[in-house]
Simulated scan of single mutants.
Amino acid sequence: MTGVSDRAGSGGASRADLVVPGYGHGLRDVVRSRYLLKLLVQKELRVRYRGSVLGLLWSYVKPGVQFVVFYVALGVFLGLEQSERNPAGLPNYAIYLFSGIVLINYFNEALGNASRAIVSNGGLIKKIYLPRELFPIASTWVSAVHFVPQIIILVVACLFSGWSPTILQLAAACAGFLIVTMFAIGLGLLFGAVNVYFRDAENLVDMLLMVATWASPVLYPWLLVRDKLGETFFLIYQLNPITVAVETFHFAFWLPTTERAEAIPPNLLSLWIPVALVTSGLMLIIGQLVFRRLEGRFAQEL
């Protein structure tokens, strides 16, 4: 035998058709495998609520309890809620708080689940080959399913507060959701791949999620950051895509119920939303590159 032919017979595949086993086409394979993605999402939901009495109602209970705790501690005890005794506080602080909580909860759940998705599905990955990106994406999709009931509650609460948003404000909220989704998927792909080789990645993600709620203006107005730490630090603070995303939700849901336009960062629409979209997009690309670099040995490492 003198060599390998470019085609193995008249019905064979060319060298260009062959691929290294264990490698796919990245996120493009997720689009092509939409049916598999749907099955994985359904499986995740069934497994998560197996044996649960409340089931999907936990999507209402958990953020509700979280909201009450933060509202009493910060709005009442620390005086962030505007009142007759505290006119300097934020009006409709309950709307301000909950609009940030629903978005940061979505990010925390999406990133936490995506970073563990590969290890959690190790048994399936070792048995058959399918696009491995499906697992972090499915986990993010499940988080989006849990996000829907929370956003419905937020909209209803806003309507009772006289909510009358503009098209621009609603578009900003959609941009905020897109920013968080891309950022969570990018980080999820990155940490999900690293976690296969170094399980310390899970602990690092837990630390990041613990900090995330306080590193963005979910519980407090951005004015406190500027007043306490100055304009220079505030510029750095705004480079965090989650900060910008949370402010887009305040702009869309809280601002139409108040007259406190100064509580929204300047240049949010013209500068910071485009910057956050680019930053999240770059994070998505980096996460995908690292994931594809490491996925070849997932089955062996698991």
Score class of each variant (00 low, 15 high):
29 D>H: 03
42 Q>H: 15
68 V>C: 08
48 R>Y: 08
82 Q>T: 02
62 K>Q: 13
47 V>D: 15
43 K>V: 12
99 S>Q: 02
87 P>D: 03
74 L>C: 06
91 P>K: 04
46 R>G: 06
55 G>S: 07
56 L>H: 00
53 V>E: 05
60 Y>R: 07
31 V>W: 04
33 S>L: 12
49 Y>G: 01
67 F>P: 04
58 W>M: 12
58 W>Y: 09
87 P>L: 00
100 G>S: 02
87 P>S: 03
65 V>A: 14
73 A>R: 04
44 E>M: 13
35 Y>K: 13
36 L>T: 07
30 V>R: 00
103 L>W: 00
64 G>W: 01
30 V>N: 02
85 R>P: 07
90 L>C: 05
81 E>N: 09
88 A>W: 10
30 V>P: 01
30 V>W: 00
63 P>F: 09
46 R>S: 15
30 V>L: 02
67 F>Y: 11
79 G>Q: 00
45 L>W: 11
76 V>G: 02
84 E>Y: 07
70 F>R: 06
67 F>K: 07
57 L>Y: 11
53 V>R: 01
60 Y>K: 13
68 V>K: 11
89 G>H: 05
90 L>W: 06
79 G>L: 00
63 P>R: 06
52 S>R: 08
82 Q>V: 01
64 G>P: 06
59 S>F: 09
40 L>K: 03
65 V>R: 03
64 G>F: 02
55 G>A: 10
38 K>W: 15
62 K>W: 07
95 I>Y: 01
53 V>P: 01
33 S>Q: 15
51 G>I: 07
87 P>F: 00
85 R>V: 13
65 V>F: 07
31 V>F: 04
53 V>S: 05
95 I>S: 01
80 L>Y: 13
79 G>P: 03
55 G>T: 11
79 G>C: 02
49 Y>R: 00
77 F>S: 08
86 N>I: 12
40 L>C: 06
75 G>N: 04
96 Y>M: 01
52 S>F: 07
100 G>T: 05
99 S>R: 05
55 G>C: 10
57 L>I: 10
88 A>S: 13
35 Y>V: 15
49 Y>C: 05
67 F>H: 04
101 I>W: 08
49 Y>D: 01
50 R>L: 08
77 F>Y: 14
35 Y>T: 15
75 G>I: 03
82 Q>E: 07
34 R>M: 10
84 E>I: 05
78 L>R: 10
74 L>T: 05
102 V>S: 10
100 G>K: 01
91 P>V: 03
103 L>S: 02
91 P>R: 04
72 V>I: 14
64 G>T: 06
44 E>P: 12
84 E>W: 03
75 G>M: 05
98 F>C: 06
70 F>D: 10
51 G>K: 06
73 A>M: 12
46 R>T: 13
45 L>F: 09
88 A>G: 10
63 P>T: 09
50 R>F: 07
99 S>H: 07
54 L>I: 12
29 D>A: 05
68 V>F: 12
61 V>T: 12
96 Y>W: 01
57 L>A: 15
38 K>E: 09
34 R>I: 12
